[in-house]
Design a protein around this nucleic acid. Structure first.
Lengths: 351, 351
DNA sequence: TTGTAGGCGTTATCAC
DNA sequence: GTGATAACGCCTACAA
């Protein structure tokens, strides 16, 4: 059996409660006894039982992470690794532990979260992505349980602390960037419509085109999974069009990777024949051929701020609701080129 | 205050212990009272307090994950995402939660693990990678605390349950594969020497060359970080040699990505001028240009089996020590070509 | 089959 | 300043 607070108490000739106070560094304990107790702790190799502490103090110093439904590979997006790093960094600084959901489907994850919350296993939750209709959020709001969202809540935006980029503006800017390079036939390849981030980026794209008085074509807007196959299907559809686009806005670097692969197969050269702006600027973006022009959304900060603000709320329930916008910046590499002459790519002349 | 077992007991007109037994589905409780109690639980919306349960039962149903020291980007290797998926899958099946370390340095992580273990926060641990001299392992063995290692322990192999690939053999096979393609000047680009996996793969590579009576050259063996920059530096060194290699064994797909990037810059064509075999076969391997020939090491299984065997050991401390070898297979794509004529690449003629 | 009571290792509220 | 003592919510002998 492990050393308990009582053993330490005996060893130091004090009451258990005194030991407890020493652990908490209670101010009105004399330095002398503090020293004595600490010595006893050292000698016995005492470590507090955190479970017991949690039970008594009704707090765990654990943050629950609601992972994306890892249907399959979405999970492997380096985006999540980076978010994790940000979360870890702040959690470590504040001595919080991180516990994650393991379920694959929305339902599984929902049940797990209920367990975590009702089971008092975590002090707060971070939702790593935001769905359009999110049962989880309603539940958590209902419980009045501390949580923050990475991304933008679809509903009740004003009542939920969330950490997001200005995806609308970012998408608008990149589209304008392409317009500035003379492109007019710009297509949009987005992730799942169910994700708020996709919706926001789509709106920004549309806004830019509208402001430039360029007609929106439904056929230029395709949605795909965040992965290779997705990118491939998407590009396939687009290139079959009578007037294929000369430039692409793709909402995720990983999808862009699929797009590059596909273009390569079709012997369409990126930049020269097809300009591409991508999102997220994960480390892969600089390693592709050509290196991608991509919007850096400061993923690490998303995670760091999420943890920071959740902990703030845990420590003080009266902490007000906040919306934190993490800045983004377009990192220009080599996947875009100016379209010379009229807005017709070499592709259209094939027809 | 939340609903407790006592509230349910009152509501159902039984003793708290009876409720507890119903929760545990104790056999000698009559179906009738079980039903009644369950009804009461439903009606009151009861959820057990897992912390209290842990304290009383001295078990948490939580597995601790010892993450790699995320100095920076190693963490972003899709390898870890895949391992996590495997771990999650089994953890979910057995209703275990996953809690991870957040520290960046070895020391930080060590301290966290001590907290987890002594704080009784987790029932067991999974070490996601294995270092050459691992203080953590000694500590855990000393405590007799349940843990399994993904990879091969450097020491005490016979006393530590671990899940590994036969990295020696895998490396030997890929080297032989290259030899079979007529290559003789085969270089090895490995990760950090501190990682057991690197050592194993290096030994396999050397063995294959030795068996083929090909001299080992120190200059053909380079170590680098698991990332882009690493790959670039490595390739740079190799190509400066008087007799540069015609083929490469690279121990990680991500490093290979860096290598590809570098070769591309130097206008050396992969396969044609430089054959490459890589390791891990993460999803990126099929998306590069050209797609990589890579050893699939079944990362998901590594994770799944790790969780499975740890839980086995948690459930029965007498569970024997095991070494689980996950099979691997070489996935041949397009990054290697047969070397025609004598073993001289077009590169050497440049000199 | 079910109830009673003590314990799990802390923290927290009283007193002194 | 420090020491009893009662929670915290559940599990588990031991009784009945």
């Amino acid at each position: 059996m492990a050393i308990t607070i009582k053993d330490v108490a005996k060893h130091a000739n004090v009451a258990p409660s005194t030991v407890s106070r020493v652990i908490a560094d209670h101010p009105r304990i004399s330095e002398k006894t503090k020293k004595r107790v600490r010595k006893a702790m050292k000698e016995l190799g005492y470590h507090p039982n955190l479970i017991a502490r949690s039970l008594a103090s009704k707090s765990t110093s654990v943050i629950g992470l609601v992972m994306p439904e890892s249907a399959d590979v979405i999970f492997q997006n380096p985006f999540f690794s980076s978010v994790l790093q940000g979360l870890s960094a702040r959690a470590y600084e504040k001595s919080f532990a991180l516990q994650m959901t393991t379920g694959k489907t929305k339902d599984e994850i929902f049940q797990e979260v209920v367990q975590m919350v009702q089971g008092r296993r975590v002090d707060g939750l971070i939702l790593l992505n935001s769905h359009v209709e999110d049962r989880l959020m309603s539940y958590l709001m209902n419980c009045d349980f501390p949580f923050v969202v990475i991304g933008k809540p679809y509903k009740h935006e004003e009542q939920i602390t969330h950490i997001d980029n200005d995806n609308f503006r970012a998408a608008k800017e990149v589209t304008e960037y392409l317009l500035g390079l003379n492109h007019e036939r710009i297509a949009f390849i987005g992730g799942h419509r169910d994700l708020v981030v996709t919706v926001d980026r789509l709106l920004g794209y549309e806004k830019a085109l509208r402001e430039a008085s360029i007609e929106l074509r439904d056929s230029y807007i395709v949605h795909a999974e965040f992965l290779k196959e997705g990118g491939e299907e998407a590009i396939d559809e687009l290139l079959k069009l009578a007037e294929p686009p000369t430039a692409l806005v793709v909402t995720d670097d990983l999808m862009t990777l699929g797009v590059l692969h596909m273009l390569d197969k079709m012997e369409i050269s990126v930049a020269e024949q097809m300009s591409i702006v991508s999102f997220n600027n994960v480390f892969l973006a600089q390693m592709t051929q050509p290196p991608l022009t991509s919007v850096d959304i400061n993923i690490f900060s998303l995670g760091y701020e999420a943890a920071k603000n959740l902990i703030l709320k845990i420590e003080d329930p009266k902490e007000p609701v906040k919306r934190i916008i993490i800045p983004h910046q377009l990192v220009i590499r080599s996947s875009c080129e100016r379209l010379e002459g009229k807005a017709h790519s070499s592709l259209s002349t094939k027809k």
